[in-house]
Design a protein around this nucleic acid. Sequence first.
DNA 1: TTGTGTTTTATTGCCTCC
DNA 2: GGAGGCAATAAAACACAA
Length: 310
Amino acid sequence: MTSTNDIKDMVHGVIIRPRDMACGGYGGGDALNRTQKLKICSNDQPLDPMFASAPSKTFLEDEFLDEYFDQPEKKRRLSADQVQFLEKSFEAENRLEPERRIQLAKELGLQPRQIAIWFQNRRARWKTRQLETDYETLHASYNRLKTDYDNLLKESEKLKAEVLCLKNNGLARDTETTNLQSCEAKELSLATPKEVIADIISEDEEHKMSELVFKNEEQSSTKSDLTNVDSPRLTNRVHSFVLESSDSSHVFEELDKSDLSQIGEDVSNGELLQTDYIFPNLDDAHCHPPASYVYYGFPVEDHAFGFWSY
DNA sequence: TTGTGTTTTATTGCCTCC
DNA sequence: GGAGGCAATAAAACACAA
């Protein structure tokens, strides 16, 4: 490949810096093949016939070299008219056929090579702008999608919160209802506290039931209330617990044995609810008795059965 | 006026196509 | 192998603020 320096060497050994060369005077390699044949001339040749008829010269013509060194040409921009004409032509067709190139060159008083270069650069500019336009379009589209996504996300979170809230409320109601149903079922099936306990125990052995709700009317209520299964007031007054314990004996360490014996006696007499062991109305959501409550219970095989009182 | 950033013109080297 | 396209780049021309 012939380089710029090769050209310099070829031109009487005179160093010609690219910046000094008119019409982009540096070239080599392919450029030699092209530029060597390229007719060097002034770019600023509008539709002025004087310029249009300017003589063509090559780099290798001594006559031209003399003229070049005497009056080095500056790279000049095309005139506004030329650019406008080329722009229109480009809009019509951004590719150049050889015939069209020659035709344009004649009409504008430029070299065909210059026309080709102008189209080439113009295509490059168009490509760059197209990329920028595409980017802007995609970016705008992305922003719209992101906004939609964010809004949907917020709505989703809001709906989740609502669902959770409704779930909690529903769970509380369900628990209450379940407890009521369970309790009512027990009341229906049990004639005495003793039977209730026996029934609970038998169920627990299978299902490790951790909680059982008794209900009772007020402290003054008697087993007439207990047998009154239609009494809704019973539900919220008395709770009892069946507590799981691997070491059920541990549970009894904290019990007042006299009370326990009393409870046992009451239970055995079927008079549990007539005692002072009134069960607290525990909050449905927490099911933990206040600290002042005392647990009473007794073991049944692997389970501890007991209840809280104060 | 001058320094600096942008645009335009042109070259270079590589590639594809015929 | 020549013609032409393209990406990268050089360099001149131009725009503009300080």
